[in-house]
């Protein structure tokens, strides 16, 4: 592959400007990246590629490790900047045309070698582009996993309604992983706050299937083992119908239609009641002396 490397070094300037022109014509995203930065990235990648091509044509070999590393960095920074993986791939692929042009000029006399070299270098660039897409996807997956974890933590707020009464308003679909987090955070909140009663409100849960119901029953049973009572509230008529149709037995579980009803029950279990102390203030008019 020596001649590829020679061509690259000899025509570095021409190839670089050809490359930048190529990108400007097709995939340039000046809204995401300035000219100076793009030029720097292109120059650095070209330098690394030319250097690696001196020793090998295999992009998975040791010779290409610096190139691969640099492309990983590019994949990451471009992802953060908002490029799509295919735009990042095009960045590498658009190097092909100027390289081919230079090689055509240099190897005009030997068409056989020209075809062979173009094949090799094209192949190498294709592979590098694919590897870069893979890295970009990998980074994106990491972001998704992190966001999922953050959502799990955010989506299970255990709130204290009264001394000894906790509520867990569930919103969104419940799957196994999420239910385990919900279960654990509710049970540890019971211990931390020394609460005798916990209310799980499922107003925001779109559907309840057998699995979700089982998870809820398990949570409630575990709470009972720890010495706390658990009520289920916010059961919409449609969900009540599903529960019966699925043959799920909620007989041992205290259910209430609304969170307010469950809260009322909790207060009465604690020997508390809400009484009217004075006539309600007219909340639409502003208080005079406050």
């Amino acid at each position: 592959m020596s001649s590829v490397h020679e061509v690259l070094q000899k025509n570095e300037g021409a190839i670089l400007s050809g490359w930048l022109a190529e990108m400007a014509a097709s995939t340039r995203r000046s809204d995401l990246m300035g000219d100076t930065e793009l030029r720097q990235q292109a120059a650095e990648l070209l330098r690394l590629f030319a250097h690696a091509a001196r020793n090998s044509s295999d992009t998975t070999s040791e010779a290409f490790s610096a190139t691969r590393e640099y492309l990983r960095e590019i994949a990451k920074s471009r992802l953060d900047q908002g490029f799509t993986p295919s735009e990042t791939a095009m960045f590498i692929l658009s190097l092909k045309q100027p390289v081919f042009n230079s090689m055509r000029d240099e190897l005009e006399s030997d068409p056989t070698q020209l075809v062979a070299e173009i094949w090799t270098v094209g192949n190498a660039l294709d592979k590098l582009a694919i590897q870069t897409v893979d890295s970009a996807v990998e980074f994106r997956d990491q972001v998704i996993v992190r966001q999922q974890q953050e959502m799990l933590e955010l989506s299970t707020p255990v709130v204290k309604l009264w001394d000894g009464v906790l509520a867990l308003p569930l919103i969104g679909t419940l799957d196994s992983a999420r239910t385990q987090v919900v279960m654990e955070s509710l049970l540890s909140a019971i211990v931390e706050t020394n609460s005798q009663i916990a209310i799980i409100d499922i107003t925001g849960v779109p559907t309840v299937d057998t699995l979700v119901a089982q998870h809820l029953i398990k949570t409630i049973t575990a709470a009972r083992l720890m010495g706390a009572e658990c009520y289920l509230s916010g059961i919409r008529p449609a969900i009540a119908q599903t529960i019966v149709h699925l043959g799920i037995d909620l007989a041992d579980i205290q259910t209430k239609a609304k969170l307010a009803d469950a809260f009322g029950l909790a207060l009465s279990r604690l020997g508390k009641s809400i009484v009217t102390a004075k006539p309600a203030t007219n909340i639409t008019s502003k208080p005079k002396d406050a």
Binding site: I190, V191, L225, M226, G227
Partner: peptide, 26 residues
Amino acid sequence: LTGMQPAVAITLVELGMSLSGIKTAL
């Protein structure tokens, strides 16, 4: 029965024991 830890309670339920005849407290 008092003071069962959350992890113990979850495991016991998963194991299939609900100890429904025993009174519990925090």
